[in-house]
Design a protein around this nucleic acid. Structure first.
Length: 596
RNA sequence: GGUCCCGUAGCUCAACUGGAUAGAGCAACUGCCUUCUAAGCAGUAGGUUUCAGGUUCGAGUCCUGACGGGAUCACCA
């Protein structure tokens, strides 16, 4: 039982003893006491004034006195207005610490026997990844780690959009302009090569549309009869018909793109357990349309198109199959949902997709529930906000995108610059130094993108956004490196901290107690991050912990401390903070260095 | 136009899901390296939480309306 649970139980007992009133311990809660008041936990009396039949101060005093007399956890109390502040017995914090410190793995909750799929990344294969994809990938990877820490078995999936008109556009431009260019001959990553031709297509297409409009065509006509657009449409038809030349070129270009993506994913540090390809799944879902018709959940219009009426659920009517019998986006999404379930028998399924598709997923999930899918209630859309630039929204065609590869390299270069400026690479080999820059640069970038509530849109200012001081990845990494230095020294001079018994400690300092309280919150934060699908909760916690540790570090001596038990306690406390920082940052996909 | 998100210090973000005098970082200013890493610590300054009502012991948080920003509403993906 935790201290909080203990106190809640005692409060419940207080209510029955003092007021003859039953309060379920699980129905009440404590909140941390604000810094300006004395105490650790605060119990709010206001909701219970009807029961206590007296004013807030008197009620609080009665309950406080009862707890002081009868609760093993409560040492003292004070009442400010209706707030009952409780001071916890100091030595209990040492027990709490001992328990935490003895844990094998600080960030792993027991298995809950459930399986969850996290689908993220899901790129188009016609252009390289950009800043928006970075947020997606970091979120997807991090939430996978967090769910695994919460006891789920996690399958990380990537649904690659490898077919469709946009890929054909790159292919058309390539055919016309490339002269057999390859990534090697062009000196470009494969995904950047494909992107180059996608941009080239757009430029030529716009020129053609302009020309047609000048010759008197309407905008709409010009757009659909531009030669390259017609060619792209034709190429899509050929691809679907399995035309060999088309499929060969498609394969060739996709292979190049995948090689490029692999490099990018590697540097990002993200992984996948399962790849789905739309070229395999785009025809799925038609059987579900049939099923929906049979169950009278869908209906057919005169022209043969199939619809679902979601007006009872507060949405509109929605098309699920075209009049000519071909699929729309949601048709294959229905099919893929079934496929995922069939492949893994999932309890939950998380889709990491930007919030511009909120409506789409609302519709998809409601349909699957209407169809009575067993996994229907386990579907979640982790809907994240766009990343804006100071100039506004990123637009690939206007060249205002921040390229993922460029940005990552820039971060690493900046990390190198900072590190050298601070003269912190004495004793590092060339290899180690490079590794460090990678850890720091990527840490700064990931932390920056993950510390913000995923639901909210966020601003990225290339000039100013990525700092190395304050609430940043490197700040937390630095705290870890400092502790590592302490542990190295402790081991070297033979401080016994791993197995020492701290129950004989006379007293602990306020900053030690505060640190234990924060350490003790880790499990709660892991739970909350898992429930809310929000890595930002972990990021925020990492900052709080590092901040608290740095205060402790500045206030209290370790190796100059005369009392051997106090000294080893402080080393152990540092050790536990390091473990927690390392484990927490791992949940964000960020590595921490031992020296920096 | 309908629907859905968002609006907190100059800037970027928090606020334990309705609790006390709204907190951090950056930028500005003041201290602290002869002690374990100053990418740090301590402090000063910065707010009518867009505005107007309402609900209640209590509202940044819930409700209504206005203003401002964004997304979405294709037989596109």
């Amino acid at each position: 039982m935790t201290i909080q649970e203990q106190i809640l139980q005692d409060i419940s007992a207080a209510f029955s003893a003092l007021f003859d009133h039953q309060v379920e311990p699980s129905s009440i809660s404590l909140q941390p006491t604000r810094k300006e008041f004395e105490g650790t936990y605060t119990f709010v009396m206001f909701p219970f004034l009807k029961v206590t039949k007296s004013n807030p101060e008197q009620s609080g005093t009665l309950v406080g006195q009862y707890l002081k007399d009868n609760s093993a956890a409560v040492k003292d109390f004070n009442v400010v207005k209706g707030f009952l502040n409780l001071v916890v017995e100091e030595n209990l914090w040492v027990d709490v610490f001992q328990k935490l410190y003895s844990k094998e793995n600080v960030a792993q909750l027991p298995s809950n026997g459930q399986k969850v799929m996290v689908e993220y990344s899901s790129p188009n294969t016609n252009k390289p990844l950009h800043l928006g994809h970075l947020r997606n990938n970091f979120l997807g990877f991090s939430i996978s780690e967090i769910l695994a820490a919460n006891g789920y078995e996690v399958i990380k999936a990537n649904l690659v959009n490898d077919r469709g008109i946009h890929i054909c556009k790159s292919m058309v431009a390539y055919k016309h302009l490339a002269n057999g260019e390859t990534p090697e001959s062009a000196g470009l990553k494969g995904d950047h090569l494909a992107g180059k031709y996608y941009v080239a297509f757009d430029r030529e297409y716009k020129r053609q549309v302009g020309e047609l409009k000048e010759s008197g065509q309407s905008e709409e006509m010009a757009k659909s009869m531009a030669p390259w657009m017609m060619e792209a449409q034709e190429m899509l038809r050929k691809w679907e018909a399995g035309d060999k030349d088309t499929v060969d070129l498609w394969n060739q270009m996709n292979q190049w793109v995948y090689q490029g993506f692999n490099d990018t994913y590697k540097r990002m540090g993200v992984l996948f357990d399962k790849f789905y390809y739309e070229s395999d799944t785009y025809l799925l879902g038609k059987d579900i349309v049939e099923e929906g018709l049979e169950k009278n959940i869908f209906y057919k219009k005169e022209n043969g198109s199939v619809w679902v009426d979601l007006s009872e659920e507060g949405l509109d009517e929605k098309l699920v199959l075209r009049g000519d019998g071909t699929s729309v986006y949601i048709t294959q999404d229905m099919g893929t949902a079934d496929l995922k379930y069939k492949d893994f028998i999932l309890d939950k399924s998380v889709y990491v997709v930007g919030n511009e598709q909120d409506y789409h997923f609302d519709v998809l999930f409601k349909i699957m529930r209407k169809l009575g899918r067993p996994y229907g209630d386990g579907l979640y859309h982790l809907s994240y906000g766009m990343v804006d630039l100071p100039t506004g929204k990123m637009k690939s065609r206007e060249g205002t995108v921040v390229d993922a590869d460029d940005l990552m390299q820039e971060m690493i270069d900046t990390a190198e610059g900072h590190t050298k400026e601070l003269g912190k690479i004495d004793g590092f080999s060339e290899e180690q130094a490079k590794e460090l820059y990678e850890i720091l640069g990527m840490g700064a970038l990931k932390y920056f993108l993950l510390k913000v509530d995923p639901k909210k849109r966020m601003l990225f200012n290339p000039q100013e956004s990525i700092e190395f001081q304050g609430n940043t990845g490197p700040f937390i990494q630095y705290s870890h490196a400092r502790i590592s230095a302490i542990l190295r020294k402790a081991d070297q001079i033979g401080v016994d901290y791993k197995t020492a018994d701290f129950s004989q400690l006379e007293k602990i300092e306020p900053s030690e107690q505060d640190l234990i309280i924060v350490l003790n919150d880790f499990e709660k934060k892991i739970r909350q991050a898992g429930e809310d699908l929000a890595p930002s909760i972990i990021a925020q916690y990492m900052f709080d912990l590092a901040k608290e540790y740095n205060r402790f570090y500045a206030e209290l001596p370790i190796f100059n401390e005369g009392d051997a038990l106090v000294q080893s306690f402080r080393v152990a406390l540092s050790d536990q903070v390091a473990k927690t920082l390392k484990a927490g940052m791992k949940l964000l996909g960020v590595r921490v260095p031992d020296r920096m």
